[in-house]
Amino acid sequence: MRDRYALALGDDALILAQRLGEWVARAPELEEDVALANIALDLLGQARSLLTYAGELEGAGRDEDALAYWRDDRDFRNVLLVELPGGDFAVTMARQLVFAAYQYELYDRLRASTDDTLAAVAGKAVKEVHYHRDHATQWVLRLGDGTDESHRRMAAGLETVWPYVDELFEPFDGADVDPAALREPWQAYVGAVLAEAGLEPPATGQHRTGGRRGLHTEHLGYLLAEMQHLHRSHPGATW
């Protein structure tokens, strides 16, 4: 059970790191190339710890690379939110705010897990994610309350990601932290940021889900094809 939990959290971090890496050398300003690479690196570090641990718990001899490179999309357990294409900078920041605020509440509680490894990963990650959340907050405020164009784009970014919010809080068998318990503090934080930015939470009636069961969007297959092709082209090689 716990191996599936570690795998799901690890997949979330891995796939979002992959998406954020796409911004490197194309960010709106040099400071953002640095910041987005930094956030991607933090997430990649979390993913490596979590996948390594998932492999140990599974006991079938799979290490972080076996799990990252040799599973097909139906075996990935990340939420759909993290696999969506990066879109423009507003879509990316909308996702960052939603996801970092969720991850912050999650890791903050996971620190108290009876599982020492998960507690240790969470203890380190919560500090990183605190920065990720702050970074996204600052941008959502700037874009929401910047120019007419940035406001319009930020609102559209929220519309894009909002159907994928509910999945974050769905029940997960064997979770150390009940996802449903994260909803209220998440709502309080994100709601306050949006209010200050002069933005409304989108009134979407749509709820996309399935990632935790391996039912993904079409986007994930392409992401994995790119991420995995070199590793898979040389089976058994060491890099």
Partner: peptide, 15 residues
């Protein structure tokens, strides 16, 4: 970055 052949190499390259 997107195609680095191991997660360790991906982290080194990103950094």
């Amino acid at each position: 970055i997107s195609r680095a052949p191991s997660l360790r190499r991906k982290a080194i390259l990103l950094a």
